[in-house]
Write a protein that binds this DNA or RNA. Structure first.
Lengths: 252, 252
DNA sequence: CCTGTTCTTACATGTTTCTGCATGTATCGT
DNA sequence: ACGATACATGCAGAAACATGTAAGAACAGG
């Protein structure tokens, strides 16, 4: 049992079950509670979890989503990504956000698709390096390590120099009152800047994001063309959004 | 048991089981743990795995994908990269080029090093995302897929807004007459722009580059602080360069 | 075929890091 | 307030690590 494995195990438990009890994990893995506590303390120091008496809870929404980077793309995100690919027109220009859903979109682009992809995510670039026809443009800036994208003033400024037909944005929260939200202020500003440079902006949000709210507002609904999700159409949040006129496309 | 076989075996284990425990592999293959550790260190320097206490874990897909595409990765690059790391001062700002040698530098940065890394390579960014203390700044622009770096007018312009203490550049040719050369004109211009923004510029060139020449000139010798290579000091090209006053540092 | 060189590998050393236990302290539930 | 549990700290043994060194294999040149 490598120390790094323990760490992953703990993060996995946090993501799956929403909590970690030091005593239980120690018994389960056959290690001392001290080691579990030490690991949790380290993870908390990195902002990956929140230490509480008896164990730990997932990190605050501001940094949540970091841990999921390692794991495989869940089915929901893949469905949403597949539906988003249908929006892309050959020969066009696409602004692609960072995050796992956008990364899934990159992976699903058909090999014969001829288009330009603009992104602030090095990960998306890496995923599309092998693509034979896509032209890549990278927006630079200070790299926000938690979500692995460029943001900040320089990145926002770089975004002013591009324009596109379509912008696909991921968010961490879609809420009737709070609107479209994400966990970091700079990231929110960057998404806003991206959306402003495209003729159409679609939001990609797998089911677990619907009804959730994060600290920072990304966009008002008026700036959004539509929403793609795999959540059931009768989800109360979706019904309210549809009633207010937002186009909602169901991924399946 | 050939060294290359061991390497493949380790990569296979990483892919199949998601981890490698140095002790176990040593017992399984009947070799010393030192050899396993050496191999893992080399693989980590090439970005093919991530070293952890007790063994290794798979590298992030973005880095592994790029590193795998490079056909030959001679051991010399690791030595050159290790020598380059010695030039980096804590708290300083470093401009890091793209390419496998620069990637090896990124992989060899000590975890306790506190510095800012500016790069136009998404791969380098991906390699340093896990680094706990390094601050990352990404220079954006059109992505040149062959070498996976941002270049072109936008990237050169972005480079004008940064400055650093040290710039580490890779080249594909080091030749007494042709000078420092590389295979793409835009890439050469980008390297030139990077070098112009740093107080010191060092060239990283493993042995096979010495005496070679590529189509496009990167920099005149006057703009270069020194050269790091693992080629023998009595290499005719190096002797000529040293005679003309260039500082040459031998990696071993 | 021989010789000197280089590279690789294994071992030996000292250092660092990890882990579990012991102690004393803080916090929780009753 | 009390006992029980969780916690932080210090410590010691163990494991992993880096480094240097020496023996052997592979190689190039004569």
């Amino acid at each position: 049992m490598l120390a790094a494995e323990r760490r992953d195990h703990l993060l996995g438990l946090l993501a799956r079950e929403g909590k970690v009890v030091a005593k239980d994990v120690a018994a389960e893995l056959g290690i001392s509670e001290d080691s579990v506590r030490r690991d949790l303390r380290d993870l908390a120091a990195e902002g990956l979890c929140q230490r509480v008496y008896g164990g730990a809870l997932p990190a605050s929404p501001a940094v949540a989503g970091y841990a999921e980077r390692q794991s495989v793309t869940p089915g929901g995100k893949r469905k949403v990504a597949a539906a988003a690919v249908d929006l892309i027109r050959p020969g066009g220009t696409l602004i692609l956000d960072g995050g796992t859903t956008a990364l899934a979109v990159a992976g699903l682009l058909p090999p014969d698709l001829d288009c330009t992809v603009i992104t602030h995510s090095p990960t998306v670039v890496a995923a599309l390096l092998e693509h034979p026809r896509v032209e890549l443009f990278l927006l630079g800036g200070r790299v926000f390590k938690h979500s692995a994208v460029a943001c900040g003033a320089a990145a926002v400024e770089a975004a002013q120099n591009v324009s596109a037909d379509l912008c696909l944005l991921g968010v961490t929260g879609v809420h009737p009152e709070a609107g479209l939200t994400t966990g970091d202020a700079d990231e929110a500003a960057m998404k806003r800047a991206l959306a402003a440079r495209a003729a159409e902006t679609w939001i990609l949000a797998s089911a677990e994001k619907i009804g959730a709210a994060s600290p920072f507002r990304v966009l008002p609904w008026e700036r959004v063309t539509g929403l793609i999700t795999d959540a059931a159409p009768d989800h109360p949040t979706l019904e309210r959004l549809a009633a207010s006129g937002l186009e909602i496309r169901r991924a399946r």
